[in-house]
């Protein structure tokens, strides 16, 4: 039996889809059989992030409404034969599927795949309830901003209410220069507030934009810092103990001087 992981955040635009694509691709690169499920019905995007938008024939709603078999709807990835995508429907809305149907679907996928990764839509309404219905565990994505952390806190509460305990946190788009300057909350600030386990930290990285432009997840790019962060996370999901990436910036001469004379 495989594991169903939902990637959620509450707030939109913090990187759920990018995270789903990278973790899924990263796990596939480690030899795991993975399916990515886009549950953002009406606003699907996981297909373009994966570069598979031209191959879609059937979608999630076609499966749940019986228009096609589950196997027919799964799109095989370009790079890995053990990686599949189940795209969201673009012309329907969130009410086209209910949590019970989602649960049944997840139970089917679990039999076949080591990891089923569910990309959750933003918000806390039906789309969210659908996405978490069949999940065994949750990953909460946030950025070091007041609004995103607040929404993450709300989502953690809602996950617990739905009996999805011990969600794991990903802090996305950390800017080490701003953290050092004291203009951005750091990892420990956010962990203090949210009080959940950390899965990983992703530095703000231009290579994510480039990889999304191309439809190739950054996790495959050895030169990408964000890709490195995702590779460490997939290792952690596989149960390995991997240290956090070092995001510290070395002290400048002036800062060393300040420390020396005890001003800091």
């Amino acid at each position: 039996m495989g594991e169903v992981i939902v990637v959620t955040s509450g707030k939109g635009g913090v990187g759920k889809t990018t995270t789903s694509a990278n973790l899924g691709t990263g796990l596939a690169a480690l030899g795991q059989k993975v399916v990515l499920v886009d549950t953002d019905i009406g606003l699907r995007n996981l297909d373009v992030v994966m570069g598979l938008e031209n191959r879609i024939v059937y979608d999630l709603i076609d499966v749940t409404s019986g228009n096609c078999k589950l196997k027919q709807s799964l799109i095989k990835d370009k790079r890995f034969a053990n990686l599949y995508l189940l795209p969201a429907a673009q012309t329907k809305d969130k009410s086209a599927i209910d949590p019970e149907q989602m649960l049944k679907l997840c139970q089917e996928l679990k039999k076949e795949f080591d990891y089923t990764i569910i990309d959750c839509p933003a918000g806390i309404e039906q789309g969210f309830r659908n996405a978490i219905a069949g999940a065994d565990c949750a990953i909460v994505v946030t950025t070091p901003e007041v609004s995103a952390v607040r929404d993450a806190d709300r989502i953690i509460g809602l996950l617990e209410a739905a009996e999805l305990y011990n969600p794991k946190l990903i802090i996305n788009r950390i800017k080490p220069v701003m953290v050092k300057r004291g203009d951005m909350m750091d990892i420990s600030d956010i962990l203090d507030i949210l009080a959940i386990d950390l899965l990983g930290v992703v530095p703000d990285d231009e290579s994510i934009v480039i990889s999304t432009n191309k439809g190739e997840p950054a996790v495959m790019n050895k030169a990408s810092k964000a890709g490195e962060a995702y590779r460490r996370m997939t290792d952690r999901i596989r149960g390995e103990e991997v240290p956090l990436m070092n995001l510290d910036i070395p002290d400048s001469f002036f800062e060393k001087f300040k420390k020396l004379i005890g001003m800091r």
Partner: peptide, 27 residues
């Protein structure tokens, strides 16, 4: 004050304090 390394002047601490207050009400 930043040059002198005074922590309270940073916007991060403003963010933390605002978050703390807003979460008390949310929770």
């Amino acid at each position: 004050s930043r040059m002198l390394g005074k922590e309270n002047a940073t916007s991060k601490n403003v963010a933390k304090e605002r978050l703390r207050l807003v979460l008390v009400h949310d929770r």
